[in-house]
Simulated scan of single mutants.
Amino acid sequence: MKIIAMIPARYNASRFPGKLLKNLGGKSVIVRTYESAVQTNLFDEVYVVTDSELIFKEIESVRGKVIMSQKEHDCGSDRIAEAVENMDVDVVVNVQGDEPFIDKVSLEKLIKVFHEDTNQQIDLASLKVRMLDKADIQNPNNVKVITDVNNFAIYFSRSVIPYHRDQDFEAIYFKHKGVYAFRKNALMDFYTTPMTPLEATEKIEAIRYLEVGKKIKMIETAVESIGIDTPEDLEKAIKILKEND
């Protein structure tokens, strides 16, 4: 089974433009993410896929593997799908370009799903983390996920799901972490399917997979990702890097 990592890297992030090229302890954020993914030794190959010549040249400067998108894309899955369309691979793992502190243990869990799925019934695997703080649960920027008893995704929403109507029972809430592992054929099906109605309503790409009948295995992790979405996040990341040196 050939497993690769793809790191979608868009330059014009709305909240923090150019964040992937910001200095993080002597290296850019995207280079740190790329090198961290390589150093996990979980993947046969690691690529950055980007729409930016600046990011392309940045990865080339460290002799990394990088692909330039030929089309405009609305989401990371589409950008990755274009890049892998003609590659001979089995499983593609989407690593977030703005999360330089790779959670190797969680990635190992995702990959394990496909090694154990001998009948190839699982199309995707993704991560969920439990939420306890009421403000986090109610925050529409945190995508919530509910699953069946076998941990297959039922639905993703920016709304609070499940609704806690009966206070005699404990309600458990999970946030969806946007790290995916796809079978290549599921990714290509996504790529050739137009945006679906619920996906368009919620602006959550994972919903498209559900709407066309794909099975998403959700893996619980206790590790919160450290993403860089704002200048303040970058300062926190610099501090973490110094503490770990």
Rank of each mutant, 00 (worst) to 15 (best):
A81H: 12
L124I: 13
R158T: 10
Q96H: 09
R15L: 12
V31G: 02
T50V: 01
D136F: 00
N141C: 08
E170D: 08
E116C: 00
T192E: 15
Y173N: 03
K109D: 11
P17Y: 01
I204K: 09
G178Y: 04
N151C: 01
L54G: 02
V212N: 10
L132N: 14
R158G: 09
L107S: 04
R208V: 03
V93T: 10
A13T: 05
F114I: 01
Q167N: 11
S126A: 11
F152L: 09
N150G: 05
V91I: 15
F56I: 00
V46S: 05
N86T: 11
V62N: 00
P8N: 01
A237C: 15
N119H: 05
N86R: 15
H115F: 15
L198W: 13
E108T: 11
M1G: 14
M87R: 13
I240C: 01
D51P: 12
S69Y: 02
R63D: 13
A83Y: 03
S157A: 14
I146P: 05
Y47V: 08
I226L: 13
K112L: 08
S52E: 00
T196H: 05
A9G: 09
T147Y: 06
G76P: 00
D51W: 12
M87F: 15
M131T: 07
E60P: 00
Y163R: 12
P162Y: 08
G227H: 10
F190T: 05
A171T: 14
I59L: 00
K236I: 11
M68C: 04
K22W: 00
I111G: 04
A181N: 03
V66Y: 00
V105I: 10
A200T: 06
Q121S: 14
K65P: 00
M131N: 04
V84K: 07
S106Q: 05
G64W: 00
L20V: 07
K65T: 03
T201W: 05
H176K: 11
F190N: 05
I172C: 06
E211C: 12
N12S: 06
Y11M: 11
S106H: 02
H73G: 01
I219N: 03
R130C: 08
V105H: 07
F16N: 10
S69E: 07
K65N: 15
Q167Y: 13
F169G: 02
R165K: 07
R79M: 13
G227Y: 08
K109L: 09
K22R: 13
E220L: 02
